[in-house]
Design a protein around this nucleic acid. Structure first.
Length: 548
DNA sequence: AATAGATACAACCGCAGGCCC
DNA sequence: GGGGCCTGCGGTTGTATCTAT
């Protein structure tokens, strides 16, 4: 926000931060004996910087302080220029197209803000990063997925087609980064493996102790809040995302890390054939996209339209000497996209599912997240009150099939300790989209005092009708949680065997044997609470660096 | 009206890669 | 090859503003 940088010198007043901002050479380290200022930039400083860049061009930022008299380190200058002063910067709220693109790009790249910014002309990595972080917070709070299903699935599909590097080797493939950064999804690599081991869908079947407390307190499924943390392994920061077998599983996910299964006893887990069929048809795609985070109950139909492009809304406040983008149209989203982003491009160019993009965006501050969330929530509410079509896809496991209500009853008392019924918790806090919880009146099971009502997207058909809840696709990682998970559980008498057997299938017999030796058998007794995941305590059988 | 919480944004920090000597 | 410098990136923090209570 420019409020901290624009008003100060214009009215001749310096903010407190500027008056006595800590001045050090800090990380810039280029003071050369001159104290370097920190904190918000003044318009005077902006002018100096702009003038300098006009004369000398970009780069050599450390020379700015030397030659222009600016008491700013080069780093700060570069940042200021890049984020606020350089021409062609596009200010204002993200348009819906940009939002979609960001979602797409994030699904592909993870937290590669700079790379993402290259596909969003006029936007800075910082903007995108802030947008995403805000979006994450919102959706986490609302228990919604990070990615709309069509984005997730599309990316997942592309990953399958483009991925050539064995992700199990720990080498990140260019497009296998679906789950990087703030990730809540199961990487395709894992999904490959899961799909090739059918039992794995029941791998979690017996997870009997999904700690509601953890769910509630940790916000469910967020990288920040979900407590499936793994032991921290010291590795270079830069390879943090690719280091793990599952990008995005580097610490906070709902499933154990694969490298914890890997070990000398297991050998390297080979990537199975992609023999499963994946139906990219959004119409029958599962309600939860691949990018659904735990805690999601969303039922998206693929329309992730949020706000209408608001070209008319420009940031009311621009940083001093800001070069406002005067021709927003010049940044048309149809600008050439890198080949690798063709799908994205197509996605962007494709007409809105409804032909128009509606928006309630009334404020420049409203980037569309709010109405997006509202729509989604409304959709969820609507779909939850509609029985799913259980017969439309034999190959898919419907939520109703998947969730054995007896399972819910099993945990009802415990869940109710937290002020909500199991069903409500499941419906609100788990990836069981819609699921059999359709039978449960949300209003009854989910007191407003228990779960804060969050605005979420409402996705409806153009005629206002709720879209039919699609079937769960096994291509979704959350199918683990909502489909086979519980399905298997009910079939296996909900005992620990329901855990161990699938795990054996998941790991393979050899690996499972090693896993048992390593203490994995205790998982049943330890419980599977999100906040007390036994994986935390699992010894690392084999680190990636030890793998051949 | 006061307060707390949420939001959006700006800026800083640490780290790593690239380049040059 | 190694060290220093510069640049860029991603994570985090700080804060003004908005909104709800």
């Amino acid at each position: 926000m420019s409020h901290t940088t624009t008003n100060d010198s214009e009215d001749g007043m310096l903010s407190k931060d500027q008056e006595d901002s800590p001045i050090d050479e800090g990380s810039c380290g280029m003071g050369g004996g001159t104290v370097l200022k920190k904190g918000p930039w003044t318009s005077t400083e902006d002018a100096i910087l702009v003038d300098y860049v006009k004369k000398h061009g970009e780069g050599n930022w450390n020379a700015v302080q030397k030659h222009s008299g600016l008491s700013r380190c080069g780093k700060s200058c570069r940042l200021r220029w890049a984020n606020h002063l350089r021409p062609n910067l596009k200010k204002g709220s993200f348009t819906s197209e940009e939002e979609k693109l960001i979602i797409e790009l994030h699904a592909k790249m993870g937290n590669k803000w700079a790379r993402m910014a290259t596909h969003l002309p006029g936007r800075t990595d910082n903007e995108i990063k802030n947008y995403w972080n805000t979006r994450i917070k919102r959706r986490q709070r609302a228990g919604l997925p990070l990615y709309p299903p069509e984005v997730s699935s599309q990316t997942f599909n592309e990953d399958l087609q483009t991925q050539t590097i064995d992700e199990f080797s720990g080498v990140a493939a260019p497009h296998c980064s679906l789950l990087q950064g703030n990730n809540y999804e199961i990487p395709d690599g894992m999904m490959d493996h899961l799909k090739s081991n059918q039992g794995v869908l029941s791998y979690a079947a017996g997870m009997p102790d999904i700690s509601v407390g953890s769910m509630l307190t940790h916000g469910l499924g967020s990288s920040q809040y979900c407590s499936f943390t793994r032991p921290l392994i010291h590795r270079p920061k830069r390879i943090r995302e690719s280091e793990t077998l599952f990008p995005g599983f580097g610490g906070n996910t709902g499933l154990p890390l694969f490298d914890q299964f890997q070990g000398s006893a297991c050998g390297k887990i080979s990537r199975p054939e992609l023999s499963f069929s994946y139906d990219p048809d959004p119409g029958i795609r599962g309600p939860l996209g691949f990018g659904f985070m735990p805690g999601s109950h969303a039922n998206l139909n693929g329309t992730f339209s949020t706000s209408k492009p608001y070209s008319g809304i420009m940031k009311s406040e621009l940083p001093s000497l800001q070069y406002p983008e005067t021709d927003l149209g010049s940044w048309g989203m149809s600008s050439p996209q890198p080949p690798s982003l063709e799908p994205v491009d197509a996605y962007i160019r494709s007409p809105s599912p409804t032909g128009t993009v509606h928006s309630d965006c009334l404020s420049p501050r409203n980037s569309g997240l709010l109405d997006a969330l509202v729509r989604e929530a409304q959709t969820l509410t609507g779909t939850r009150n509609h029985s799913p079509d259980k017969s439309s896809n034999s190959g898919a496991v419907t939520p109703s099939d998947a969730v054995d209500s007896s399972m819910l009853n099993l945990y009802e008392p415990e869940w109710e300790e937290y002020g909500c019924s199991a069903t409500s918790v499941f419906s609100e806090c788990t990836p069981i989209s819609g699921s059999s919880l359709d039978d449960c009146p949300p209003a009854k099971t989910l007191p407003a005092t228990t779960v804060k009502t969050e605005p979420v997207d409402h996705i409806s058909n153009e005629d206002g009708s709720q879209q039919e809840k699609p079937q769960i696709s096994l291509s979704r990682p959350d199918a683990l949680f909502d489909a086979g998970w519980f399905e298997q559980s009910s079939e296996c008498s909900k005992e620990q065997s329901a855990v161990t057997d699938p795990i054996a299938a998941f790991l393979g017999d050899d690996c499972y044997g090693a896993y048992k030796v390593s203490g994995g058998t205790s998982m049943g007794s330890q419980g599977w609470g999100i906040g007390s995941c036994p994986w935390n305590n699992m010894p690392a059988v084999c680190q990636m660096s030890e793998l051949p």
